[in-house]
Computed example of a mutant assay.
Amino acid sequence: MIVVTGANGQLGQLVIKELLQRIPAAHIVAAVRNPDAADELIKQGVQVRHADYDQPETLTAAFAGADKVLLISSNAVGQRVAQHQAVIQAAEQTGIKLLAYTSILHCDQSPMQLADEHKATEALLNASSVDSVLLRNGWYSENYTMNIPAVLKMQTLYGCAAEGRFASASRQDYATAAATVLTSENQAGKIYELAGDSSFDLSEFAAQLSQQSGKQVSYQNLSEPDFTQGLLKAGLPEGFASILANAESGAAEGWLFDDSKALQALIGRPTTTIADTIKAALA
């Protein structure tokens, strides 16, 4: 039996969908903070169990009888290490045989602030008695396409990535990779550096968006402090704005690029291009 944490989230829902194509629904557990919001999963025959990263007792109950767990990293920046530690401890207590974790690209070397909590989590996994596999996911293409309406309105894409290249892939690509690993044998100890087959810089993203939308969009590169201030004015929380701006500076230094094509090899097809993700977003 396979447990997917955060199963009501965007990535979690896609992983569940992929697993349903591979194994019986009764062998899948959707671990969610709010079971009342998981009606669609229940209709598909998936077991839905309450699991809150901040309530460890719910985790041991959610993992009971399972063999594998996918720990989808929490979105509570600043609280993730303690939350992830609770999941790892619950996995130890319930005899989980394999714990897969969605980390970040080149986590062990990355200087980005975004990598700090992932590094700490990977260290906890290394010290744990539970076998683990690391899915070091690169940038999600949706990180940019989700902001297309605002970008088109301003006709400007702001950032601080300079000419740094993003080897991004779609959320669906990463979900397929996770499901593949969870339903494959001999995964313990493996580390996957996952990124898109092709890459783009933000000027190229703006050009592609202009071409597809018929509206002229330009990229304006800012300093990291100025971009942080822009994100704050847009309503992002201070800590999150700082981390996003720092990630773009990291991209300028190459930390969100990878050309190993490990993701393509894992999912058995080319990864989704940024052009296709833009097209889907515009549609």
Score class of each variant (00 low, 15 high):
I2A: 02
V15Q: 01
K17T: 10
K17W: 08
K17I: 08
E18G: 06
L20I: 10
Q21E: 09
H27R: 14
V29M: 05
A31E: 00
A31K: 01
V32T: 02
P35N: 04
D36F: 09
L41F: 05
I42M: 09
K43E: 14
G45I: 05
V48M: 06
R49Q: 09
R49L: 08
R49P: 00
A51F: 01
A51H: 00
Y53H: 08
D54Q: 13
T58M: 04
T58F: 09
L59M: 03
F63S: 00
D67V: 07
K68S: 05
S73K: 01
N75A: 06
A76N: 15
A86T: 07
A86W: 02
V87L: 15
I88T: 10
A91F: 02
G95C: 15
L98I: 01
L98S: 01
L99E: 01
L99W: 00
L99P: 00
S103P: 12
H106M: 03
C107F: 14
C107N: 14
C107K: 04
Q109T: 15
Q109R: 15
P111F: 10
M112R: 13
Q113P: 12
L114G: 15
A115G: 02
D116G: 11
E117G: 10
H118W: 08
T121H: 04
A123W: 04
L124T: 06
L125E: 04
S128A: 12
S129G: 10
D131S: 12
L134H: 03
R136M: 00
N137Y: 10
P149H: 09
P149E: 11
L152G: 03
Q155W: 08
Y158K: 08
G159M: 04
A162E: 11
A162H: 10
R165K: 13
A167P: 06
A167Y: 14
S168Q: 08
Q172M: 10
A175W: 00
A175T: 07
A177Q: 02
A178M: 09
A179E: 03
V181S: 03
L182H: 02
S184Y: 09
N186T: 02
I191Q: 09
Y192I: 03
L194K: 03
G196E: 05
S199L: 05
S199W: 04
S199H: 13
F200P: 03
S203F: 14
E204Q: 15
A207H: 15
Q208A: 14
S210H: 04
S213Y: 06
G214F: 11
V217M: 11
Y219Q: 10
Y219F: 15
Q220L: 13
N221I: 06
N221K: 02
S223Y: 11
S223W: 13
P225G: 15
P225N: 13
G230W: 06
K233R: 10
K233N: 11
G235N: 08
E238W: 04
F240P: 02
F240H: 07
I243K: 03
L244F: 12
A245Y: 08
N246M: 12
G254E: 07
L256Q: 06
F257Y: 11
S260A: 12
A265I: 11
L266Y: 07
I267A: 00
G268Y: 10
T272I: 07
I274C: 07
I274S: 05
A275W: 07
T277D: 13
I278T: 01
A280P: 05
A283Q: 09
